[in-house]
Structures are given as C-alpha cells and as structure tokens.
C-alpha cells in the first residue's frame, strides 16, 4: 500500500506552548484514519500543517508524495479540507457556496455530482437558503459537500462531528464509510471515543504527542489489567466507596456502570462482589469485561501523566 500521507518527526510551537511534539506516522492510500483527542491535543495544528496552511518548526510531512512546504500549490489542488470552524460564506446560499468552491478548483458541480449526491441531495430542498441560516447538522453536510466538490484524493476533516447530536453523528460516519468504499483516503479528527472504532487505524493524541497508534482492536490490547464493570443503584455512593479503597487502581463512570481496576491483579469478580456486599451495597453486580477504546485512552493518559491530572 502506498502512503497518502507521511509525517516524520513533526513539531510545532506557539510561544510557550509546544503544540506538536515529534509526531511520526503514515496513512496508506484508501485508509480511513482517525486522530482521537481532546481540545488542545494538537489535532488541528497537525491538520493545518498537512493542508499547507501552517509551516512545521521541525520534521517534514508529505501528502500524496509531495512535501507540504515545497509543493503546497500542487497539494492544495488535490486535497479536500473541512476545518473545525464553519468556514463557508454565510451570506451566500447553499448552492452558491457549492458553485463557488467548484469554480475555485476549476471544475463544476455537475461534473462531480455523483460523488456528493449522497450528501448534497439532503440539502437540495434548501439550496436557496443562506448558509449562515442553516442548522448545525446541515452546515456540516454543506461543508463536506464543498470539501468534496473537486473530487480530492485525500480528505481532511477536522472535528466534523463536534457539537453534533448522536443521530447526525451516526449518519455522518455512514457517509464517510461510503466515501472510503470509493477509495478515498480520509483523515478525520474527533474528541468522541466511540467514533474511533469506525476507523481503520487511529492515533491517540494528548498535549501534542501521540500516545498510541494502531487499529482499534490493537489499541485496546494495550490495556493490560483485568477490568471490572460494577453496577449498583447508588452509583455515586459506589464511586466514592471504591475511590476510598486502598486497593483501587482506577475508578471511572461509564454510563450506567463503573469501570474498575484493582491493584491486586489476581482479584476475582466474585471476591470483589463479596467485598462490596460486605460494605452494604446489596443490589450490586460485578462482571469482568473487555476494555474499550475509552478505557484504553484513559489508562494511557494516566500512565503518561501520573497523578498530575
């Protein structure tokens, strides 16, 4: 597989803030690659370097085999970029925005309509509406259409689903899946851990560094300890009780359950259950579970940062 994107030792500093530190990875052609991390992790800075809007301080990066510093003009013609911040023209209509972006790239909406039909058809009833008047979900669809209208070879999507509801997020990822089937290389960043499993490979980002890089299933193998899911009616009291235990390694709420690791690695679920029942939790249940992406991310964060969080 050829590399669509190559990043070698890239670093970037803004004043006192080291926004990126020694980021090295490659993304293969046709891959759907996810950068997972919170605000301030460096995702946007990295994307801006790759789409030739920002120069790296250190290291080098290539997109489609072209150096991002020397060949920025060639790269810009061949990539699509959807920034995290809504960047279309609010005073132009839906249709005018799309035509504008097509013309800037020397093409027409008609020529590449096939590629955007899936997404744009949902917007067509509103094509005369000003882009600034669209709802969040529709702005996102228009921005994606504009990023695709010149049929780019690599698509960069910077937090396309931030602030978007769970249903729209699901639809958006279905669209990405279909683009991927057509062979497009897609780099996407997100703070949502549940979206990570939808990528071919992911990089965990935290404070400018890469914490891990692997397939979603490979990432979860980095979680080494036995993990328990504990449920009780009084979740908050249970959380406090577990945190107060000298044996607790980690206690985190995960929806209706608590995910717990213990310092005694041989501890069994039935022993833990008995201990909790002895503490007065009568309606408690304990099971051993497979760690997910978010469990692993938290574990890696703790490992890197110790207790300073």
């Amino acid at each position: 597989m050829k590399d669509a994107v190559l990043i070698a030792g890239v670093g970037k500093r803004f004043g006192a803030v080291q926004a990126l530190q020694w980021v090295t990875l490659s993304v293969g052609e046709g891959e759907l690659f996810g950068f997972i991390g919170a605000d301030g992790a460096g995702k946007t800075t990295l994307f801006r370097i790759l789409v030739t809007l920002l120069l790296p301080d250190e290291g080098r990066a290539e997109v489609l085999g072209l150096d991002v510093v020397r060949f920025y003009r060639d790269i810009r013609k061949r990539i699509g970029y959807m920034p995290g911040k809504f960047s279309l023209y609010p005073d132009l209509s839906v249709e005018e925005n799309l035509r504008f972006f097509a013309s800037v790239f020397g093409t027409t909406v008609e020529k590449n309509y096939e590629l955007i039909r899936d997404i744009y058809s949902q917007l067509e009833p509103f094509k005369t509406r000003r882009a600034g008047k669209l709802s969040g979900g529709m702005k996102q669809k228009l921005a994606l259409s504009c990023a695709l209208v010149h049929r780019p070879e690599v698509l960069f999507l910077d937090e396309p689903t931030t602030g978007v509801d769970a249903v729209s997020r699901k639809e958006f990822w279905q669209m990405l899946g279909r683009l991927r089937e057509q062979g497009m290389t897609i780099l996407v960043s997100t703070p949502y851990m549940d979206e990570a499993v939808l990528c071919d490979r992911i990089a965990f980002m935290q404070e400018g560094r890469m914490l891990a890089l692997d397939t979603p299933s490979g990432i979860t193998k980095l979680f080494q300890k036995p993990l328990f899911a504990i449920r009780a009616r009084e979740t908050w009291r249970l959380l406090c009780a577990l945190r107060a235990s000298p044996h607790a390694a980690s206690v985190y709420a995960f929806g209706s359950a608590l995910h717990y690791t213990d310092n005694r690695l041989s501890l069994r679920a039935d022993e833990l259950l008995a201990a909790l029942q002895a503490d007065g939790f009568t309606d408690v249940s304990v099971s051993v579970i497979q760690p997910g992406i978010e469990d692993t991310f938290i574990a890696l964060m703790e490992e890197k940062q110790g207790s300073c969080l």
Binding site: G37, A38, D39, A41, E159, T162, G163, P191, M193, Q206, W236, L239, Y252, A253, E294, F297, I298, M301, E302, L309
Partner: peptide, 17 residues
Amino acid sequence: TGGVDPVTRRRFWDMIY
C-alpha cells in the same frame, strides 16, 4: 463537556454530583 478529554469529562461530573 464538549471537546474535553475523557478524564476531565468525568472529573466534571464529579463536581455535578
């Protein structure tokens, strides 16, 4: 908690509780 890392997100909920 939009755009916040998973640990900070949970710390925030501690405050809510």
